[in-house]
Write a protein that binds this DNA or RNA. Structure first.
Length: 474
RNA sequence: GGCGGCGUAGCCAAGCGGCUAAGGCACUGGUCUGCAAAACCAUGAUUCAGCGGUUCAAAUCCGCUCGCCGCCUCCA
């Protein structure tokens, strides 16, 4: 049946294959993304996480599903505490500055706002309660004022990451001397407060003394608090699979005995010169850096979007230049579509639109294959652009094409479909240039064109007269 | 050491057992244009990191080798 062909499939890290996405009968999807830590500005790696989450959400919505999405901000951990200390600010002051920055990046990138953005610091009571229950159930133990999760008690451990606990290298990223675990493989749920934290007032009173939550329990607590015991989709980037997501699963499933999430989706890393973008590699490029270099958030969005989310994306400024030209061609097309006066009808355009949409959605259904989906768009433009150029679309057909682009743009958020806004003076200049051209006064015509360029307006001459588009978006 | 990923034209990137290996960018030539910009037309891989194997058939499956990368329990 045709239904089969149009099924949406996601690569599920849990099953290690593409699974058909089965929504709940009520057509609601619960969706959680592990968000950033509020101690550094949004870098491109993080932008990828935002954009991939956004793409998944938008695509589900295009299928008629209602998505309840949450992304946390980690505002209570080693880095935020250390950062606040160094900046001589309260934790709240320090983290809120970065959280505001994240929200600005989210908006700038055209990422739809999530249903909610919970803060770890506001859910500590839930975390303490979870810890109580875990101890009660025998999954956790207290030692010297810290609470650890006893991994040997959770039999399903390692299913997501495929890790074999007996073969991992211990102490690879952790100084085990700082802990007093029964087993070095155990992880921290609540950590005894340090003297510095106590001084600063960053601590929480419990039966075991003053503590501070560890990272893993924060996400378990927030995701289940807002979305229930089993989420439909849990996502983030692949470097979080182990230990973070493995531990989130251990906590939540030890508690409820139900799967934490039905589908686990992980985006690949963003690299610079083949290496992970990270402070350790000293190659972090922030969104602001890129904008300072004259690129736009839209260009960043398109760069990230046009590589499949499960493929590593090697960032370079050269690549952004490449993206800019690709985008120019698309902009030119939509500009002509919107601004050129209607002409004669064309017999095949409706069929071109149908083909494009079929190919587009088929590609997207297959684990969000955006590269292939964009291929369908380019093929359409290639076939339609010359028709448009000789003014061979009537008003209805233009609207038909436009409606299709609007549908696709609900998912991509890339096209410029706002029409030709009439900036004061611009029309006069265009008219003046046309008049001069008619009189073969080339000097005057070029002056007008230069003036338009100075105002950020580019003229595109066509057979049926000039159209114009902004050189750069805002 | 364990687990996992990547390697397709100058660059980016689809294809994951069988129609001529999508598409984008760049280059070059041409059409159009007052000039320009854009657009349009034409032009690229006997070959998919390498070597073997399976098969009537492999970029696609299997094995080995090479190169690069990620994770290994409070970095997030």
């Amino acid at each position: 049946m045709e239904e089969k062909k149009l099924q949406l499939r996601f690569y599920n890290t849990l099953s290690k294959k593409k699974d058909v996405f089965q929504a709940q009968p009520n057509k609601r999807v619960t969706f959680y993304t592990c968000g950033p830590t509020a101690y550094e500005p949004a870098n491109l790696s993080l932008c990828r996480r935002f954009i991939v989450s956004d793409l998944i959400v938008r695509y589900l919505e295009s299928k008629g599903l209602t998505v309840e999405s949450y992304m946390n901000f980690t505002d209570l951990d080693d880095n935020t505490i250390a950062g606040a200390d160094k900046a001589d600010q309260s934790l709240k002051e320090f983290t809120s500055r970065y959280i505001d920055g994240f929200m600005a990046a989210i908006d700038g990138l055209g990422v739809k706002r999530a249903t909610g953005y919970p803060l770890a610091s506001e859910h500590v009571a839930d975390m303490i309660e979870i810890t109580h229950e875990l101890i009660h159930k025998g999954y956790a133990y207290e030692k010297n004022g810290s609470i650890y999760f006893d991994i040997s008690k959770f039999k399903r451990y390692g299913r997501l990451s495929g890790i074999d606990l007996s073969k991992i290298q211990l102490g690879h990223t952790v100084d085990l001397d700082n802990y007093e675990k029964d087993n070095p493989r155990d992880f921290t749920l609540l950590k005894r407060s340090t003297l510095a934290e106590l001084k600063k007032g960053v601590f929480f009173e419990t039966d075991w003394g003053n503590v501070r939550p560890g990272w893993h329990i924060e996400c378990s607590a927030m995701s289940t608090r807002y979305l229930g015991e089993t989420l439909d989709i849990h996502t983030s980037s692949r470097d979080l699979i182990f230990p973070h997501h493995e531990n989130e699963i251990a906590i939540a499933e030890a508690l409820t005995d139900k799967p934490l999430a039905r589908y686990w989706l992980h985006s690949e890393l963003l690299l610079v010169d083949g290496k992970k973008m990270s402070s350790e590699n000293n190659n972090v490029v922030t969104l602001d850096d890129v904008i300072l270099r004259g690129f736009t958030a839209r260009e960043v969005r398109f760069m990230i979007l046009s590589v499949h989310y499960r493929k590593p994306l090697n960032f370079s400024f050269k690549r952004l230049v490449n993206v800019r030209t690709a985008l120019r061609r698309i902009d030119e097309f939509t500009c002509k579509l919107l601004c050129l006066p209607p002409g004669k009808p064309h017999p095949e355009v409706a069929a071109f639109v149908t083909t494009m949409e079929e190919q587009f959605f088929e590609a997207m259904d297959d684990d969000l294959n955006v590269s292939k989906a964009m291929g369908a768009v380019y093929n359409f433009i290639k076939k339609t652009q010359p028709i448009l150029h000789v003014n061979h679309l009537d008003q209805d057909q233009k609207q038909y094409v436009l409606a299709s682009f609007k549908r696709l743009n609900q998912i991509l958020g890339i096209f410029r479909l706002k029409g030709c806004p009439l900036a004061p003076g611009v029309n006069d200049l265009i008219a003046r240039r046309e008049q001069a051209r008619k009189e073969k006064n080339w000097q005057e015509a070029d002056n007008a064109r230069d003036e338009l360029l100075r105002r950020g307006v580019q003229i595109i001459d066509t057979i049926t007269g000039p159209v114009w588009k902004p050189l750069r978006e805002e």
